[in-house]
């Protein structure tokens, strides 16, 4: 069993084991998490998202290097998908970052999404609290290769980087609602390829069409080539500028309060849902309802409404 003092002092073995307890939904894990919660809240959390294969992991490898040169301690959580068929997963993001693994100021943890929708796993936020309490200054969270609607990263990160590549969609892709709206920093990676400038232009067009005010952060667009590290340091500095901007505009407090509220809300939903499922598994009424639906005596809509009212005590 890990203990809170070891974790506060940054002991990697203890911190990692706490993450495992939390992933296993072990009550001891949540007990420790409660104890450590007051020690968290100091880290700057960066979310990196984008389609599969755009170079998120390789970009993060470069960001680790850039932030380490500025003397920050850096932790990374990489989320990869769980197979819907076997429940297994290959967690391969860290291959791109493996040169940092023996650096004392770096911690890299892979997580499988375990059926959770939204591009992260259910316990990603909990784990970021652990890494925060361990004293990492910057926590980078890499979402699964995201489509247009994996938004969970915005519930956790203070600053969002959306990575894309040249030639991925035209102007209409850029104005669609979705993941692009979430970006504070746009990264057009693999920019040695043709059409990099056209991609930058269509992102600029999209940004120009938005209403903006003096007090609002205007998303920035950068071209990078993560493989040879071109442009990475500038991106790292841009994230820090965004942090500085938020701090100067009270945005920081507002954002942190908002993220706390979302964390609380998702925990509450999980707890309530779990109790509901427990009730449903043993309830005679649910059993009877299923029977009467089967024989077409009741329609499923009314049956579900009745049971829901019953559970919620209306």
């Amino acid at each position: 069993m890990p203990n809170a003092d070891d974790i506060r002092s940054g002991n990697k073995l203890a911190g990692a084991r706490l993450i495992q307890l939390i992933e296993k939904s072990d009550p001891n894990g949540f007990k420790l998490l409660k104890e450590l919660y007051p020690d968290s809240g100091n880290a700057f959390i960066i979310g990196i998202t984008g389609s599969p294969g755009v170079g998120k992991s390789t970009l993060i490898d470069g960001l680790i290097e850039a932030f380490r040169k500025m003397d920050f301690k850096v932790a990374v959580i990489c989320v990869d998908p769980t197979s819907p068929f076997s429940g297994g997963a290959i967690l391969g993001d860290r291959i791109r970052m493996q040169r940092h693994v023996t650096d004392k100021g770096v911690f890299i943890r892979s997580m499988a999404s375990r059926g959770h929708k939204g591009g992260l796993s259910r316990t990603t936020k909990d784990c970021s609290v652990v890494l925060d309490a361990m004293g990492y200054d910057i926590i980078i969270i890499e979402s699964v290769g995201a489509g247009q609607a994996e938004f969970d990263i915005i519930k956790i990160a203070h600053s969002i980087g959306v990575v894309s590549i040249p030639g991925a969609g035209d102007g209409i892709q850029a104005v669609k609602a979705g993941i692009l709206e979430t970006a504070n920093i746009f990264i057009v990676n693999k920019s040695d390829r043709p059409d990099a400038d056209a991609t930058v232009e269509s992102l600029k067009m999209m940004l120009n069409m938005r209403f903006s005010s003096q007090t609002e952060w205007l998303p920035r667009i950068y071209k990078t080539n993560a493989l040879d590290k071109t442009g990475i340091t500038i991106v790292a500095k841009a994230f820090l500028s965004h942090l500085k901007f938020m701090r100067q505009n009270d945005e920081w407090t507002r954002k942190r309060n908002e993220l706390e509220r979302l964390y609380f809300q998702s925990l509450l939903e999980d707890l309530v849902m779990e109790k509901v499922l427990e009730f449903m598994a043993v309830s005679k009424e649910v059993e009877a309802a299923i029977k009467s639906i089967g024989s077409h005596e009741t329609d499923p809509i009314s049956a579900a409404e009745q049971i829901a009212d019953k559970i919620l005590g209306f």
Partner: peptide
């Protein structure tokens, strides 16, 4: 993976420290 395990693949040329 197909047997339901979570596999972390660290790649080639790993030192024992890594």
């Amino acid at each position: 993976r197909d047997a339901g395990m979570e596999v972390i693949y660290s790649g080639l040329h790993q030192t024992l420290d890594q």
